[in-house]
Amino acid sequence: MRILIATDAWTPQVNGVVQTVSQVVAQLTEQGHEVRVIHPGLFNTIPCPTYPEIRLAMWPFTRLRNELNRFKPQAVHVVTEGPIGLAMRLLAHGRKLPFTTAYHTQFPEYVKARSGIPIRFTAALLRWFHRPSRAVMVPTQSVINTLKSRGLSNCVLWQRGVDVNRFNPQQSAASKHLSYSPRDLPLDDAQQVELLRRLNACSVEKPVFLYAGRVAVEKNLDAFLSLELPGEKWIAGDGPARKALEKQYPEARWFGMLNHVALAELYKKADVFVFPSMTDTFGLVLLEAMASGCPVAAFPVNGPLDVVGNSGAGVLDWNLKTAAMAALKIERKVPLEHARSFTWKNCAEQFQGYLAPIGISASVPKQVQAIHKPISNRP
């Protein structure tokens, strides 16, 4: 099948959207599908307001139209609601081509956190954007329920996965030797070794509470950094709020942006992964931490409720300090086993099952049963 994917999020960005789409593309390509990804790197770009690290494509309409004519896709999927996603949505809808979309980001909540604009205005725009979609792929059931309450009835569950070859509790060769050789240690890299040397050269006061991800206002990091906890707080990641937070909380260890190989070392060394966000649709970092044997502490909100739920792999509590301290008591084998039930293979199979083939009359694609049953501790 020829599959055209339009996305405003792509490398060199490092986030859950890019990770998900990259993994799905790899899985589909391995299965023999021809996948064409239209991304910002193919266009002239401008920095996203308030988030210059993200580049937005300028005038993508013409190229997307030409790509539709040349590639002749048998399925079209729109990943994001940015300029590329909007142009593809308008083109496909205008040509009466069936297409699917995805809901990766809680834009109404993000926009409100950044600007104060009421949720109802952004929710109305998203409702307009996704309404023609044959299936809006959403990562958790709780977010589906939220979208349904806002007038979107065409949502389907599309879960995520984790690469257990990359994120696991096993000691790496680099951590044993503190050296890097592309010939002798092909699975290690220079950033990983530099991180390990940095940690080895300083004393670490246990326990270690770790956050990894974007450092931005919508991630609610103050709720974590302001806690009075024993041991140390580690922050891995970058974003527009980093400078201000680093100045406000100098006692935390700030590691900056890390690649996945280096980040995997932090997950192994941390005692609890603290996830203070209240606006995420899923939170891939939750799976990465748990696959490394690190239990989770989070608020009982969309994302953690579905990924952790009542599995015992973490503690969800409106008092984040209570959750963090209680998570210290969880045996590391519990989150490890829970995370292994989420695979990228299953994610790609669900994605393919939801696609709306062009030229075949269909309404919403048949619901693909989630191989991992959603977990919820909601009453």
Rank of each mutant, 00 (worst) to 15 (best):
A326W: 07
G116A: 06
A123Y: 09
L97G: 00
E34Y: 10
S149Q: 12
R340W: 02
A87T: 00
E34T: 15
P207Y: 05
V138S: 02
A326M: 10
D280P: 04
D306K: 08
W318G: 10
P379Y: 14
L56I: 04
E265C: 09
V308F: 08
F129N: 00
K112L: 13
P365E: 07
I117E: 05
L187Y: 15
V143E: 12
Y180C: 11
R197S: 07
N377M: 15
A201S: 15
D271M: 11
R242G: 06
A9C: 14
G116C: 09
V315K: 08
N200E: 15
A113Y: 00
H130Q: 02
E232Y: 03
E67P: 05
A244Q: 09
G151Q: 01
K219C: 08
R183K: 13
D163K: 10
W10R: 02
L258S: 13
D189L: 10
V156L: 02
G94A: 03
T343W: 01
A326I: 09
S341A: 09
K268G: 07
Y51S: 14
V79H: 08
L286A: 08
V307Q: 07
N165E: 10
I5L: 04
N220A: 11
M1F: 04
R55L: 12
L4D: 03
T100A: 06
G237W: 01
R89C: 01
A124C: 06
V79L: 05
V156E: 08
Y103Q: 06
L64A: 03
L64D: 08
M58Y: 09
P379H: 13
T80K: 03
R89N: 02
F129S: 01
I54R: 08
A370T: 01
M88W: 12
A113K: 08
A297F: 05
P250W: 01
L91E: 00
W10P: 10
M257D: 13
A6E: 00
L91C: 03
Q74S: 14
F107E: 04
I54K: 08
K333Y: 11
L199V: 00
I5N: 02
R253C: 01
Q19F: 04
W59R: 11
K268Q: 11
A348C: 02
T343H: 03
V296Q: 10
Q350T: 05
L42K: 04
A57W: 00
W158L: 07
K72Y: 09
D280M: 01
Y51V: 15
K329P: 11
Q350E: 08
I371A: 15
Q106T: 07
F351D: 05
K345W: 00
T122V: 14
S149K: 06
D189I: 09
Q19K: 15
P52K: 06
Q352N: 11
Y103C: 09
A26D: 12
V315C: 13
V261Y: 14
T105F: 06
C155S: 06
T146S: 15
V274E: 08
A241W: 03
A92K: 13
R65D: 05
P139V: 13
Q27G: 13
P49I: 01
E194W: 13
V78S: 07
L199I: 05
C48T: 13
A223K: 03
V78L: 12
R2Y: 12
P374D: 07
D189A: 13
